[in-house]
C-alpha cells in the first residue's frame, strides 16, 4: 500500500482530538492576532510615518540661498509630497485587498504587493535624501567658492565629492542591513511559499 494511502486510512478515522469547549473558543476570539500581515502593517505604517516626519525634522538653514536653490527646493517639495501621497494611497488600497478567503496564491500576491509599495516608498525616500544632501552640498559650494583660488576650488570639489559618496554609501549600507534583519525575516516564509506555487506552475 502506498505510504500516503496508509496515512489516509488512518486520517479518516482519526477524530480523536479532545474537544476545545465553547468558553475556550469564545475567549480566543478577542485575543490579539499575531499574524505576519499585522506585523507588516505595523512596520509599514511606522516606515511611512518616518518618511513624512524626516521632511519636518531636518534642520532649517539660516544661510543665504541662490535663487536656483529656492526654485529646485519648491519643485522638489511638491513632487516629494505628491509621490508620498501616491505611495500611501497604494499601500492602504492593497492592504484592504488582503483577504484570507481568496486562494493562497492571490493571498500571497496581495500581501507581498502591499509590502512592495512600502519598499518602493523607502527607495524613493533614500533617493530623495541623497538628492537633497547632494543638492544642498552643491549649493553651499556654489555660494562659498566664489572668489576662491582655482587650487582651493579643486581641493574643495574633490573633498565634497568624496564626502557625498561616503555619506551615500554609508546610508545605503545601513538601510540594507536594516532590511536584511527585519524585512527578510518577516516575509521570508511568504516569499518561499509564493515561489513554490510559481515553481509548481512552471515545472509541471
Amino acid at each position: 500500500m502506498d505510504g500516503l494511502d496508509l496515512l489516509k486510512q488512518h486520517w479518516n478515522k482519526d477524530n480523536n482530538f479532545p474537544k476545545v469547549d465553547k468558553e475556550q473558543i469564545k475567549s480566543m476570539l478577542y485575543k490579539s492576532s499575531s499574524s505576519i500581515v499585522k506585523w507588516i502593517f505595523i512596520i509599514s505604517v511606522i516606515e511611512l510615518a518616518l518618511g513624512i516626519v524626516w521632511g519636518f525634522v531636518l534642520p532649517t538653514e539660516d544661510r543665504v540661498h541662490t535663487s536656483f536653490y529656492d526654485i529646485i527646493y519648491i519643485v522638489f517639495s511638491v513632487v516629494f509630497y505628491v509621490v508620498i501621497g501616491y505611495f500611501i494611497y497604494n499601500f492602504f488600497a492593497s492592504y484592504r485587498n488582503i483577504k484570507n478567503t481568496t486562494n493562497t496564491k492571490i493571498l500571497l500576491e496581495t500581501i507581498l504587493n502591499t509590502r512592495k509599495h512600502v519598499n518602493h516608498y523607502i527607495q524613493f525616500n533614500i533617493y530623495s535624501i541623497i538628492f537633497m544632501f547632494a543638492f544642498v552640498t552643491i549649493d553651499i559650494m556654489m555660494t562659498d567658492l566664489v572668489d576662491k583660488s582655482p587650487g582651493n576650488i579643486v581641493f574643495k570639489v574633490i573633498f565634497m565629492v568624496l564626502f557625498i559618496s561616503l555619506f551615500c554609501w554609508l546610508f545605503i549600507l545601513i538601510v540594507k542591513v536594516y532590511y536584511k534583519i527585519l524585512y527578510r525575516r518577516l516575509v521570508r516564509k511568504l516569499d518561499k511559499n509564493y515561489e513554490e506555487l510559481v515553481r509548481i506552475e512552471e515545472e509541471s
Binding site: 499574524s35 500581515v37 478567503t101 493562497t104 493571498l107 500571497l108 511568504l190
Partner: peptide, 12 residues
C-alpha cells in the same frame, strides 16, 4: 480554506 491560508501565509 481560511485555516490553510492562515498556516501557509499568515501564521508566524
Amino acid at each position: 480554506r481560511v485555516s490553510l491560508n492562515t498556516a501557509i501565509s499568515l501564521y508566524r
